[in-house]
């Protein structure tokens, strides 16, 4: 990778990466961790990149996936935690859903979606990008992006249904 350099990449995209991670994780510490992981991952593979990397696309994808990966990881930790002390959590049946909890639930569901669908959902609904831009970032057609988004929304809604009715 010669045409650009690593520092330049950080200067250019650092804020975007932090913001995307923040929107998904809603926690500034975790967002910083994801930021760190994303750029270190790039650095460790630096020699493998050739001249025409679609950096915005690559960074968005890596950020989304790294963030959702961390959700899956902490989910697994939580589960292990719960198994150790079963009394701690398990909220009562009539607790009210607050926005933050809903968002947390949405992200947990997102983490279970196929990667492509999760990418499209985050870019389109959370980053607020048009189909054209999403397609460009992910290197697919507009129509493919649209189909992925529709599938993602459907399966998230299905997950929500089970959750809301619990």
């Amino acid at each position: 990778m010669s045409q650009t350099c690593f520092k330049m990449l950080i200067e250019r995209y650092s804020e975007a990466v932090t913001n995307t991670a923040m929107r998904i994780l809603r926690d500034s510490q975790k967002a910083q961790d994801v930021h760190q992981e994303v750029f270190l991952r790039i650095l460790s593979r630096w020699h493998k990149f050739d001249g025409d990397v679609n950096w915005p696309g690559y960074l968005y994808r890596t950020t989304i996936r790294t963030a959702l990966e961390s959700v899956r990881r902490s989910k697994a930790e939580q589960l292990a935690e719960q198994q150790r002390e079963p009394v701690a959590s398990n909220p009562g049946p009539d607790w009210r859903l607050r926005a933050a909890e809903l968002q947390q639930k949405l992200v947990a569901c997102l983490a279970k979606l196929p990667k492509r669908q999760a990418d499209v959902f985050v870019l389109s609904r959370i980053e607020g990008l048009e189909y054209d831009r999403v397609a460009e970032l992910l290197g697919c057609s507009k129509e493919t992006a649209r189909v992925h988004l529709h599938r993602a929304i459907k399966s998230l809604a299905r997950d929500f249904r089970d959750y809301l009715r619990k």
Binding site: S14, R23, S28
Partner: peptide, 22 residues
């Protein structure tokens, strides 16, 4: 829910310190 999330962004300090760390 996604719409609410889209309105969120990292504050300047978070951005700065993320960059600083890397």
């Amino acid at each position: 829910c996604a719409d609410a999330m889209s309105r969120l962004s990292a504050d300047e300090q978070t951005c700065q310190s993320a960059k600083q760390r890397i």
